[in-house]
Design a protein around this nucleic acid. Structure first.
Lengths: 220, 220
DNA sequence: AGCTTTTCTGATTTTGTAGTCAGAAAGTGA
DNA sequence: TCACTTTCTGACTACAAAATCAGAAAAGCT
């Protein structure tokens, strides 16, 4: 078995491994870990089920391997954030939220998986926190802490603020089945998407701003 | 097998059935449907595992039966809402959100289960929408629509607004494992709970208010 | 007490899925 | 062509959990 975490290895096998990871990420994000079966992944990836065990040790490692695709997304976000380094904390936070919303649209898997595992707890959430979302959340909370110190954000506990902002965004964007079935609304509206993003952002973040923070924003 | 949906029946059996439902609701809300085992429920309820099949047809029906406990919670909410019938829509909405946050604290199962199933879709979500949360959500969306017509809320799609408000609240209150493990924060703070509720409410709903809605609120 | 019904259990079967293994096919280099 | 490695499959095992069933215990009734 080739080392599946060694990205640059084995040209032929890596192609199928990548296809498997892709299918796995899709299914894990839509159904959650337990509802996904290796047989289902194998079928969708057009390989036999033992092929999964050739490329990946077990189901848990396949899950982690699929998640690593999201690390690239987070790294890209961090890269884009760098250009705002010298802006006030509240503006950086706004930009981070804007990026987060765009990521949630483009990579629904991220938000859904974090939410699914975040509800249930357990070792996969621990892994996610350690490897992917933990450092990112701490950076954001630090920004929030700074913005509060600046008097731009209301004195809400920074960690709770970040969780609120993100789960609110994840909810609007990712609770598609709920909305579709509950309201008969189709949330997949690429045309109005950008406008929606702005409204969600303003609505969510706007509630936490102080008057000073609001004024600061209009100046920018 | 007695009809488990007939609430007034069989005094002795109903006691254990109720105990089983209670345990089931707790486990389903913490772990999600698939991670819960009938054996685990049986152990926690101090009965043998076939006893579950005596009182409930199968795992799915036990789940639905446990969920019906939440119908009482929603009915109670509706009853409390009645006193606000003549207030402006935006004030009713604020009250509804306040109740929702309190419910989320007191009955974490509700929010968690809806969120878990809402992400994954499927027949259980369909059932929830049909039997429990659908009618409630439509009522709230109608209130939002009215508040927007009154000029008190910004013209955000009412359904999305409701989803945003609730998932934001659910997130802050229910993503306890995520917060605990990710931030090292213990979110179980009954002392500060009421204050937190107010802040969450102001922050979430505040972002959607127009200037007029803000003014209206300060008059109340 | 004796009979009947309800409530529950121990033992067992069934089912679905993760994981294994021996070996076939496909690709690689001499 | 032939040896060799990588990649993959069909058939299988292992196991956990849902569901069943025959019958025991408890409760209720006369």
């Amino acid at each position: 078995m080739p080392d599946a975490t060694d990205w640059s290895s084995t040209p032929k096998g890596e192609a199928t491994a990548a296809r498997i990871r892709e299918v796995a990420l899709d299914q894990f994000s839509r159904l959650g870990f337990e509802r996904v079966t290796l047989g289902g992944i194998a079928r969708a990836a057009r390989v036999s089920q033992p092929a999964l065990h050739y490329h990946f040790q077990d189901k848990a490692q396949l899950w982690r391997s699929a998640m690593l695709a999201l690390a690239a997304v987070i790294a890209e976000e961090e890269r884009l954030m760098a250009v705002a380094r010298d802006l006030p904390a509240v503006s950086q936070l706004r930009m981070a939220m804007r990026l987060f919303l765009q990521i949630s649209w483009n990579h629904p898997a991220l938000g859904r998986i974090v939410a699914l595992e975040g509800m249930a707890g357990g070792e996969r959430l621990e892994w996610l926190n350690r490897r992917l979302i933990g450092p990112r959340n701490r950076r954001l909370a630090e920004l929030a802490r700074q913005a509060i110190a600046d008097g731009d954000l209301r004195p809400f506990p920074p960690e709770m603020l970040i969780v609120t902002l993100q789960t609110g965004g994840v909810g609007v964007i990712n609770l598609a089945p709920l909305m579709r079935e509950g309201f008969g609304v189709d949330p997949d509206l690429p045309a109005a998407r950008a406008a929606h993003e702005e409204m969600i952002l303003e609505a969510l973040l706007g509630g936490f701003l102080t008057e000073r923070g609001r004024a600061r924003e209009s100046v920018r």
